[in-house]
Design a protein around this nucleic acid. Structure first.
Ligand SMILES: [Mn+2]
Ligand SMILES: [Mn+2]
Ligand SMILES: [Mn+2]
Ligand SMILES: [Mn+2]
Lengths: 217, 217
DNA sequence: ATAAAAATTTAGACTCGTCTAAAAATTTTT
DNA sequence: AAAAATTTTTAGACGAGTCTAAATTTTTAT
């Protein structure tokens, strides 16, 4: 069995690897896990011993097949629990992540399987992130950032890149929920802010900062 | 905040105190928590420092008000999760305890509150154990052991004293589920085994060992 | 009332995951 | 190509929770 801590490191390595090219660095892991580089170094040695990562000193780190399988298992559990919390218990998408961080470590194949069935085999979590298959495959989705959409195009909000409660609450307040239709009316040449029409109703301005973190299509 | 381990000790002290008179002993705690007396001694010192137990060396241990409040919180979470696992996910009453042992430590007031509402504020868990109130009160129930019931009386199965999967699976096999009606037809004078009629249908023999662990109304 | 037995606590050690400070390797700058 | 800056690793320590072995206290038996 693997500890909570090991599971968290694997998950974090997976996420960092997904968003850059090449190996994941010690410092980026330290930042993400809110620990110090020295602690990360220690843990990397342990994970390498257990064959969960490929690790060459000073050269960064990469998941082995087994490590990726485990990381995806944890991510699957996390996202399924998020669906449960949002759909069944009525939590907002800004509240579910923190609880899922704990629930994802509950160890029982059976539990996640039954929960998945109870939820009707959801494909996406409340943030629009795809749920890995039981076999450990991450579905590929190709979404565009709202900031990349050209004027005149109408798209649908499919997910978010930024997951902080503050950002999600901001979207709630402006009415930019998952699934809502967005027509790009204009892009400001100076600050790249976007003027959009939501669901063929109200018009609003979206800063580039927000637009870069909204996945559409 | 309190650690998983501290929560488990408090819960165990509560259970041991409930089933004996007087203080709880170091050895009984070591047995229940599957650790050694030396480890228990250490932990008792820590819990006493935190004012969660009354502790005089060599004289056993008793929960403080704060300690009992915490213990009941953990027990409440445990039993609510058990209801969820049985009612919503379809697990058997022999399967839920182990998972609830982990889920009971998920820290969120909001989560247990919403889960409670989702389940319709259940009063009893799948084993017939009462669920402590949000305020931290353990409901009093007065049940009798089936082994104490006199011939001719008809009672209803309300709970179990023994919670092992083996015992519960045995009850499943013989059809002695929660809520079923039991008419005591005869008690064997030699081994105290009981001849009972279930739901006015089939008759079966129940060993004294089983009858002592069945709570009836 | 002693002695023996049992229960409990203390002492010292170990693992896990973390830290700070120092050393070593790599990368960047000049 | 050196020197400087940055990144990473190692060394040594710590807290939580556990262990075994030894010391101490309490209980039971003689
Ligand atoms: Mn999340
Ligand atoms: Mn999510
Ligand atoms: Mn239980
Ligand atoms: Mn129960």
């Amino acid at each position: 069995m693997h500890s909570f801590t090991e599971e968290n490191y694997l998950k974090t390595i997976y996420y960092l690897a997904a968003r850059q090219e090449g190996e994941v660095t010690t410092n980026s892991l330290a930042e993400m896990t809110a620990t110090k580089a020295a602690s990360v170094s220690d843990m990397l040695r342990k994970l390498a011993e257990k064959q969960l990562i490929h690790y060459r000193k000073y050269q960064g780190v990469r998941l082995t097949e087994e490590g990726e399988r485990l990381a995806l298992k944890v991510i699957r559990r996390h996202r399924i629990w998020e669906v449960f919390l949002a759909e069944k218990l009525g939590f907002g998408w800004d509240e579910v992540h923190e609880m899922a961080e704990e629930l994802e470590h509950i160890r029982s194949e059976d539990l996640v399987q039954k929960l998945d069935a109870f939820l009707g085999y959801p494909q996406f979590d409340p943030h629009g992130d795809p749920i890995p298959s039981p076999a450990g495959q991450m579905p590929t989705v190709e979404y565009t950032k709202l900031s990349e959409v050209t004027i005149g195009e109408e798209v649908q909000v499919m997910g978010v890149l930024e997951h902080s409660p503050e950002f999600l609450q901001h979207l709630d307040k402006t009415g930019l929920n998952l699934g809502c239709r967005v027509l790009v009316q204009d892009v400001n040449a100076f600050d790249k802010s976007v003027s959009v029409q939501i669901n063929h109703e109200k018009t609003l301005f979206v800063s580039n900062e927000v637009a870069r973190n909204l996945l559409v299509n």
